[in-house]
């Protein structure tokens, strides 16, 4: 599904935050993990930002397959 990577990234971010918050990591690991967390956070918000609103409609072909086309709904 489209959200798999995002979900994974978000989950990782959550884990990282929790790990950092326990404060049990060494400084070096903390920084490493933090950096990773920042990347995940950036990835996640990036994915939210760059998702565009696109409306497509599925059209059934004669052979039964489905073809997609941009959907124009009156004022869209």
């Amino acid at each position: 599904m489209a959200t798999d990577k995002f979900e994974a990234s978000l989950k990782k971010l959550e884990e990282i935050v929790k790990r950092l918050e326990t404060g049990s990591l060494t400084l070096e690991d903390s920084l490493k993990v933090f950096e990773e967390g920042v990347k995940h956070a950036a990835f996640c918000s990036g994915r939210l930002d760059d998702a565009e609103r696109r409306v497509e409609i599925l059209l059934k072909q004669k052979d039964g397959s489905l073809k997609r086309e941009p959907f124009e709904s009156g004022e869209n």
Partner: peptide, 13 residues
């Protein structure tokens, strides 16, 4: 549109 939601929509008519 009103909510500026960045969601893709796939319409199955």
């Amino acid at each position: 549109k009103r909510r500026f939601a960045s969601l893709e929509v796939l319409l199955y008519p």
